[in-house]
Amino acid sequence: MVAPTEDFLPKILGYGGQSVGEMDISAVADVLAADYLTTGPRVEMFEALLCEITGSRHCIACASGTAALHLSCMALGIGREEVGLTSPISFLASANCIEYCDGRTDFIDIDPETLCLSPQHLDAYCRKHKAPRVVIPVDFAGLGADLPAMAELSKTYGFSLIEDAAHALGSFYEFDGRQYACGSCTHTDAAIFSFHPVKTITTGEGGAVMTNDARLADRVRCLRNHGMERYDDLLRQHGGWVYEMNSLGFNYRITDIQCALGISQLSRLDQFRNRRRQIVSNYNNAFSDRDDLLLPHKNLALTACPHLYPIRLKAGAAKRRQVYETLKADNILCQVHYIPIYRQPYYAAKYGYPKGKCPDAELYYSQTLSLPLFPAMSDHDMLRVIDRFRIALG
């Protein structure tokens, strides 16, 4: 029997992907014919649009979501051996940004329903240990973390709060009968976004820091550009070419090329959000009859702009692996989000964190599988995932 060739296999569906159209391509081409390729007017336009969308007063666009996290920690003055807490169920950058500042990263268990950092576990940590210097809750899969509860804890214990909204551009959370945009910084000192191709919108690579604190915003802008500063007295005294570097910064700038793409993408934010919610709702309907599955939190289809569809297989890791490999053979490339960060050799070796450190995170990790979810998926793609997933489950 002859093995099937690639020509006879169905098209590859990854767990996520960009949705780039002719309007996006045209926007980028316009910049290539303009005066600025690096930091120019499109950067400021992109920043202004993000402020308008979120309600935050200040936006500093930068090279990546990781850069945005690093800049936020630096601007808040996280120092050597100061403790920063985050969720173990996130990408590495949520924790690494604390390490970049020579801080000490620790992890708080998740809420088993929302899969975001648990305010109850955070409170227990603060009661048992010295209060942390910073806490970085993650809006997992696009679902807003319980930021109001953590804001109250920050008042009690005195830590800074950075919302990792890398998954959550276009998402909202509710408090006291009102909706707040993720990234609005209503309940945090700062927030960050990522514009990686699998996120809500893309700039290729890119990120942003949001804040309502003007001094913090100025500090982030300075650190984004090598720590260079130009101020009126200096320029008047020495001339327009003069700059000073009073602190060590980075080249974390973003380009006009990237921001032109971002501006074009933001014009379709509502469209992207609606399609993502539609896919989540269809998945929920398709799998609601299965007692061997745990569906994501209901708000993923209501208040979130869903980034992931993390469905849980009650049978656990062995079954998850079997389903993963079966779908992979059919060119449906699911993913697992995420391995608990404290399991990584760097953190396990440096701090001695055991594999079972956060029990709810461990249980979730043993069961989860992220099904494909991105706006460019056709209805046929979605039905194919539903059909093949049900068959793989048996």
Rank of each mutant, 00 (worst) to 15 (best):
A348K: 14
G352W: 10
Y173A: 01
L383R: 10
E82S: 02
G144W: 06
S118F: 04
T5M: 12
S154N: 13
T202V: 10
I254H: 03
K199G: 00
I108R: 13
N274P: 00
I110W: 12
G356P: 06
H226N: 10
T5D: 14
G55F: 10
L333Y: 04
Y252D: 05
Y231M: 03
L293G: 10
E47G: 08
S264W: 13
G356C: 12
V134P: 04
H129T: 06
A141M: 13
Q322K: 12
Y243G: 08
P4Q: 13
I108W: 00
A93D: 14
L9P: 00
A168F: 01
M150A: 07
N274T: 06
M23L: 12
G394L: 03
R236Q: 13
R42M: 15
C334N: 00
T326S: 12
K130R: 14
V138M: 10
I53M: 00
T38D: 14
N212Y: 05
H196K: 03
E22K: 07
A63D: 09
R275S: 07
A317S: 08
K328T: 12
R80S: 09
I201E: 10
H238S: 06
P354W: 10
F107G: 14
A329C: 06
L161D: 08
D381Y: 05
E6C: 01
D164K: 02
L143S: 03
S247T: 12
P148I: 09
D123Y: 14
S160A: 15
F159R: 10
E82I: 04
R321I: 11
A29F: 05
T326P: 03
Y347M: 03
